[in-house]
């Protein structure tokens, strides 16, 4: 006999999968906008380690001379990104899901144990309810990053009407830079996220579609089997 464990409520699954294509469009249209003025690079002393973006990248994604198009997509889909994000936050707090999401006292130490486990240094993963400490931290940070993108975005979208916000985010040029850095952050998050989902396996992945994980029934007195996280 098997049991199913309810993991992700329907609403969370919707928010998750709606956000994915919207974020793709926001990042892609953001690149079309960024092409028109590309000041950012990673540099040590006089040595440029990486320029955002190299020509091969711009060519591969066909980013040239599409500023107007990029702006239109960005300023249309910003609404969907904002609404979906706001509903997600609202739902998380009203439903009580935040208890699984926000880091608690143990999360930071637990996150360290998870990292050691993931690197193969520690044998066992710490027990968890729904998300482990590393996940709680990562998913909360990504939420804060989303809010950061909205605020820095607004700061550069209407720097005169919201000049207070623009000043608060470091001024027009800094706000633009943070808006960009946050986007790079999403891409890094995405890469790690995909890697972890693949690593965690099918049962974990399918839960983001079905809502439940399948658990083999264990003998009495054994603590709940830790599901491998993504």
């Amino acid at each position: 006999m098997k049991r199913i464990v309810h993991k992700h409520p329907l609403a969370i699954r919707w928010f998750h999968w709606i956000n994915f294509p919207i974020l793709v469009i926001m990042i892609w249209s953001g690149l079309l906008i960024y092409w028109a003025y590309q000041p950012y690079k990673i540099q040590i002393g006089d040595t440029v380690l990486f320029k955002f973006f190299p020509n091969w990248f711009i060519q591969a994604l066909n980013l040239r001379r599409r500023l107007a198009e990029g702006m239109s997509w960005h300023f249309v889909f910003m609404w969907l990104f904002t609404i979906n994000g706001a509903l997600y936050v609202l739902y998380t707090f009203v439903s009580g899901e935040w208890r699984f999401l926000l880091p608690n006292r143990r999360s930071f130490r637990e996150a360290w144990q998870v990292i050691l486990h993931d690197l193969g240094i520690r044998k066992t993963a710490p027990p968890q309810v729904k998300y482990n400490g590393a996940q709680r931290i990562a998913y909360t940070v990504i939420l804060l990053m989303g809010i950061g993108s909205l605020l820095t975005g607004l700061a550069i979208y209407k720097p005169t009407q919201f000049s207070g916000l623009t000043t608060l985010t470091g001024g027009y040029e800094n706000a633009r830079m943070w808006h960009f850095i946050l986007t790079i952050g999403y891409v890094l998050f995405f890469v790690i996220h995909i890697f972890q989902v693949v690593r965690a396996g099918w049962n974990n992945f399918q839960a983001m579609v079905t809502g439940f994980e399948v658990e083999k029934k264990l003998p009495e007195k054994t603590p709940p089997a830790p599901t491998t996280p993504a």
Partner: peptide, 15 residues
């Protein structure tokens, strides 16, 4: 079964 229990994820037997 969308309602979340307070502490632990809800478990359900399936035959």
């Amino acid at each position: 079964e969308e309602k979340l229990p307070e502490k632990k994820p809800h478990r359900e037997e399936l035959t």
